[in-house]
């Protein structure tokens, strides 16, 4: 990211969410971004992942400059290469664990989606719950399914937005361990947003953000 800024229009005029952000994330690196509420960390994550468009500056992902691409184009760049884990899991209710993991695989056009989904669930220790509806799983199990979904496509980068935010401390540690274990296994680059100090210390690099600006990188 090079001199990236994000400005939004509000009833009171323009508001700068991010100002002059410049950073690099290396291949296979685990980067943890920490900031207080309203610091702009979620916006930063969104820009890095190509979910949002910067107002100025360049965001380059897999060699492609995302800044002037529309959503369709950014989606194509993401397809099969980027995984996500969300704070609220965001699993498809009414579908099983396996079906949730199959979803991004099928959207990307992969033929052996079911086998890959089952394999991914095995990796996160949920081989016995493949046919369980996700609403019948515990919070920790749901987040495992989300992690399995994120890793099922063998992404190059995995973006996680407060992955332990809705979990208790014990479960949260288990999820963190799992994410880093899988990252070590697969060599996936990990970009993680959190407000937990313990998670910050697990990363290869820590980025602190405040009021839309990087404090440390």
């Amino acid at each position: 990211m090079n001199q990236v800024g994000k400005t939004v229009d509000t009833p009171n005029g323009k508001l700068d969410i991010l100002v002059n952000i410049s950073l690099d994330v290396k291949y296979q690196e685990a980067v943890v971004i920490k900031g207080a509420s309203g610091s702009g960390k979620t916006t930063l994550l969104g820009l890095m992942a190509g979910l949002d468009q910067a107002s100025n500056g360049d965001v380059i992902l897999f060699g492609e400059n995302l800044t002037h691409q529309n959503e369709e184009q950014r989606s194509s760049i993401r397809a099969g290469k980027v995984g996500f884990v969300f704070q609220s899991f965001h699993l498809v209710q009414g579908a099983t664990a396996a079906q949730n993991v199959m979803l991004p695989l099928e959207l990307s056009g992969m033929e052996d989606a079911q086998q890959r989904a089952i394999a991914s669930l095995q990796q996160v220790g949920l081989e016995a719950k493949t046919d369980t509806l996700v609403e019948h799983l515990s919070g920790g199990e749901q987040q495992r399914v989300a992690i399995a979904r994120a890793y099922a496509t063998n992404p190059k980068v995995l973006f996680a937005d407060e992955p332990t935010g809705n979990l208790d401390a014990v479960t949260g540690r288990q999820i963190t361990d799992l994410m880093f274990h899988l990252r070590d296994q697969s060599g996936t680059t990990l970009v993680l947003v959190t407000h937990e100090q313990e998670l910050l210390e697990r990363g290869d690099r820590q980025i602190l953000i405040e009021s839309g600006k990087l404090l440390t990188n």
């Binding site: 992942a49 979910l51 959503e71 369709e72 989606s75 194509s76 993401r78 397809a79 099969g80 980027v82 996500f84 965001h90 498809v92 979803l103 991004p104 959207l107 990307s108």
Partner: peptide, 13 residues
């Protein structure tokens, strides 16, 4: 939310 999720998972318009 579901549509946003599908987009995040690289679904096209």
């Amino acid at each position: 939310i579901e549509s946003s999720l599908l987009r995040a998972l690289s679904a096209h318009t």
